[in-house]
């Protein structure tokens, strides 16, 4: 296993995502599993980043457990959220962007 920046947390060794422990500004560079990645937009505390490249249909693992399936290709270091991850149980309701 490669090393990780202290601003992200790998919650279980088998996980393919990491949790963000501090708000990250766009342009930040940090180490995820031994590779330097560029954060392309602001990421809030508590959000998730891909630990490695993930193919569509692959299960996303956090806490060592499945939290849903990838809906499109996700590159290492990319934000994992509603645009590329869906529940295997129930759809997630969201509001359209304000303004």
């Amino acid at each position: 296993m490669g090393s990780f920046d202290s601003r992200v947390i790998l919650l279980a060794p088998e996980d393919n995502c990491v949790a963000v422990a501090a708000t990250l500004a766009a342009g930040t560079r940090l180490l995820i599993d031994g590779a330097m990645v560029l954060i392309e937009r602001d990421i809030g505390i508590g959000h998730k980043l891909a630990r490695r490249d993930i193919a569509p249909g692959e299960k996303i693992l956090k806490y060592g457990a499945i939290i849903g399936s990838a809906t499109r290709p996700i590159a290492r270091g990319a934000h994992i959220h509603l645009h590329n991850l869906a529940s295997d149980y129930l759809p997630t309701y969201t509001l359209p962007p304000a303004g």
């Binding site: 809030g44 959000h47 939290i67 959220h81 969201t94």
Partner: peptide, 11 residues
């Protein structure tokens, strides 16, 4: 919940 980084009910 999703604004705060949670994506799915199982998460």
């Amino acid at each position: 919940n999703s604004d705060g980084g949670l994506t799915t009910i199982e998460e």
